[in-house]
Amino acid sequence: MNTARYIERRIASGLLLLLAVSLLSFSLSALAPGSFLDEMKLNPQISPETFTALRAQYGLDQPIALRYAHWLRAALHGDLGFSFAYNAPVSSLIWNRCSNTLLLTGTATFLVWLLAVPLGILSAAKGGWLDRICSFGSSLLLSVPEIVIALALLAFVVRSGRLPIGGMASLNAEDFSLTQRIRDTVLHLVVPAAALVLAALPIVLRHTRTAMAEVLQAPFIKAATGHGIFRARLLLRHALPAAASPLISLFGFSIAGLLSASLLIEVITGWPGLGPLFLESIFARDFQVVIAVVMVSSALLVVGNLMSDLLLYAVDPRIRLE
């Protein structure tokens, strides 16, 4: 099967997947207890009649199948729905937040791979102290919830006073020149990106190390060493591609997680991405926002997995596309 047709088929199945995700998400949202208006029940000044009227206004009294049909029809026309909480179309809420999130996760993902792969290779090839430090460091980082990592970094920054504490820009950033704006954004990016890197680094590091260690014992590496091939060339040109399979799948996850990996860290560090909006919408049962975000990140998941499959194929030509 040629690559183009394969991609076509994958995209078609990806669309089916999105349909299934939306259907299931709708059903789950109906099953989950509570509704957007519940908060009002605790306000003694709002009468049950007002409550019922509002339910009708938001269409929450309609059966779930009907609500899904409405939503689907709108979605096919490119309308992602309406937020109850903001009284505004969902699309007006999520797009610029998406780009903020991508800035953060893109930077972090880049750094993770930049750091983790060389460290993993070195720790597999050299062993010794570096290996032990990597091993202990990664199991320590894996055992700390990412929120705690972010909080610890922030607590440190509060005490050192060198970096801004949260958000993405200074209050008066509009009045800055371009270079100052970039500097300002980078300064704000340090803490959330560092937290994300520390949380994701050990996973890639561990996988790289294991896969490389396995490959380095293979006969062909011993043969290559015997032929006097340079160590660096040996590691990067011969060993790494042979060890790449799990890394490629992980890379697919990295792409898939570009919109979802940083949700909690964004809340803690006040990064104006999807995180605060998404989590608040989940708790507030602002379903259309939740489903829109789920759909967008599902689309990214499809893309990420497709990319990893194509990469797998590119690295190992023995694999056939089916």
């Binding site: 909080l151 922030l154 509060v158 504490i165 949260g166 958000g167 803690i268 006040g270 104006p272 995180g275």
Partner: peptide, 20 residues
């Protein structure tokens, strides 16, 4: 008057503590 959105209470507290 500028209202900045901190995200949660801990972030609100840290920003105040850091005099932001």
């Amino acid at each position: 008057m500028a209202f900045i959105f901190a995200g949660n209470e801990d972030a609100q507290v840290m920003r105040f503590e850091a005099r932001e």
